[in-house]
Design a binder for these strands. Sequence first.
DNA 1: TCCGGCATTGAATCCGGGT
DNA 2: AACCCGGATTCAATGCCGG
Lengths: 361, 361
Amino acid sequence: MTQKQKLPLDRILKGDCIELMNSLPENSVDMIFADPPYNMQLSGELRRPDDSFVDAVTDHWDQFDSFEAYDTFTRAWLAAAKRVLKDNGTLWVIGSYHNIFRVGASLQDLGYWILNDVIWRKTNPMPNFRGTRFTNAHETLIWCSKGPEARNLTFNYDALKVMNDDVQMRSDWHLPICSGGERLKVEGEKAHTTQKPESLLYRILTAASNPGDVILDPFFGTGTTGAVARKLGRHFIGLEREEKYISVALERIRKVRQLPADDLEFTRSKRQEPRIPFGSVVERGLLSAGQILFDSRKRYKAKVRADGSLVASDVTGSIHKVGAQLQGASSCNGWTFWHFDAEGKSVAIDVLRQQVRAEMN
Amino acid sequence: MTQKQKLPLDRILKGDCIELMNSLPENSVDMIFADPPYNMQLSGELRRPDDSFVDAVTDHWDQFDSFEAYDTFTRAWLAAAKRVLKDNGTLWVIGSYHNIFRVGASLQDLGYWILNDVIWRKTNPMPNFRGTRFTNAHETLIWCSKGPEARNLTFNYDALKVMNDDVQMRSDWHLPICSGGERLKVEGEKAHTTQKPESLLYRILTAASNPGDVILDPFFGTGTTGAVARKLGRHFIGLEREEKYISVALERIRKVRQLPADDLEFTRSKRQEPRIPFGSVVERGLLSAGQILFDSRKRYKAKVRADGSLVASDVTGSIHKVGAQLQGASSCNGWTFWHFDAEGKSVAIDVLRQQVRAEMN
DNA sequence: TCCGGCATTGAATCCGGGT
DNA sequence: AACCCGGATTCAATGCCGG
């Protein structure tokens, strides 16, 4: 039984998220999305980690107490989340100015490493009715890894670039709030006060997870994370205390159909493709020893040797190293730098690599 | 000698900002803008895809040994800032994800009250050259008062609305970075690695200060705050440790001309306009006692009394209170709720208030 | 004088696998 | 753990130069 099979995949667990996370195996989930309580000032109430109420705030000490209580709660769930997250996994947290600064500082204190803060710009925020502030038109997300040394994080850079008209995706996202038919209702009332739009989760899961990955949401609510995960062919684990949210979420997710596998395919990065040594191009006879290569502007040239190294005037080495040295650059991608003559046309040797890759499939 | 006259207006003080702030009189400045070190933690060098070198911020003043050291520094200057700030003054801090969460949490711990977080969306940010993150395309500003009880804060709501094509100004601002002719140079090199654009300060000062106000900047650098303050007819006090920045700032500000007073007149927020009691409308004869007022749909009516109160069936009180009680609402803006008959047409009494205001100028 | 092309630059926590 | 090395990776604005 693999680690993944031990997980309660695609289920909602009822209870306290800290206890539930501690009951899951460590280093087991690929990504966490968390939409924790935003804090007291708005709701007028704050619960301690043991679920007791903090008394009304009437003086400075009480106020300090309540921030402290919120911090204690925050650090507890962040620590539990770090334990269940894989070493190459990432965590997303969303919040507003009421709580996000405390969450961010706690993250850093616990050793998490911030990768980006992302701004969700609302296309249709609620105006400031009294004209005393700027329209509160955004919320903040923090995206982080388990530490500065974490490697092999999932970030589908090229998929997002394509989504964004072939320009690198920025840290500010312009998306509508959850309303209309998407907004879940129970007897005419909204089922959850802070339901997030599916478009937001769609972008997060596309960016930072792959099909088949396990996504944990410790504040599951009415299950936006689960619905989008299912649609995108990811597994989810939802943690939620309130039965009323769980029942709505179950019903909601039941209706979701996973997109056809074909449609789940996305633009992969070159980094993920198998490495082809230049030597194998020579080995297979796609280029022969003695052949002359040159750069696109024909300023430099070099000769191919039998072992797949190049020789230029006074330099010898790999296609990359020779390219770099000739240009006086610190590095060089030899595959795109060097060209050969094919029926009068200058062609980058990268096409030969693609040929080898094609033969390997 | 007034408190304001005791201040070193329109000057730059050289030295440690905490000591200097402690030497200023308490409750004396109207607004503070702070651009503290971000405590960026860089490792190694970064090159663009074209192999050119990225000249990053490696200044000694941005280096701290630990988060704890940074927090200690942050709390110290925030506490000193709170002392010199007037009780109705506000503080702005700018930062990136490296430091802003720590700053925000410290602010809250010290009793500051966050009014908004504002996102500066850069039109032309530096891209992520390695394709490993989202473009870091924004910075975060926190705007806060000295506490939740602070009153009479300066917020020029209508000026910003006009600036924003008559739509309420949002919490996300789209502005270019400082470049081109605006970027200060010394012998061809940038004078300061983190010079902020004047447009950013322009908007901040327009929003949260008035002509004649005193603006303190404890991390003055090359003086963007001072230059914009002077242009907009505000006073500045700059604190700066490094002589090399001070000399550049002095020269820069010397060249700035204040805008003509006429151009400084902006649409003043209604909130700040002199309050007009309904009684003065009666007093001036714009309405006379005994006159009948009604709401736009003529469901309710009330009679004006000599003292400016209204009488309805069984309610007596201000135009606001009577309007609210008749509707069974908790509040009501009497100025727009109540109408009178002017030559057969129904007109809101607010036009009378505007008439009074016009006469007062 | 204008236009097109090329170079420069900006608060950056910017790779991964193998030896 | 430190080093080595293959090879993947950029957007908007400004300014300079040549035609």
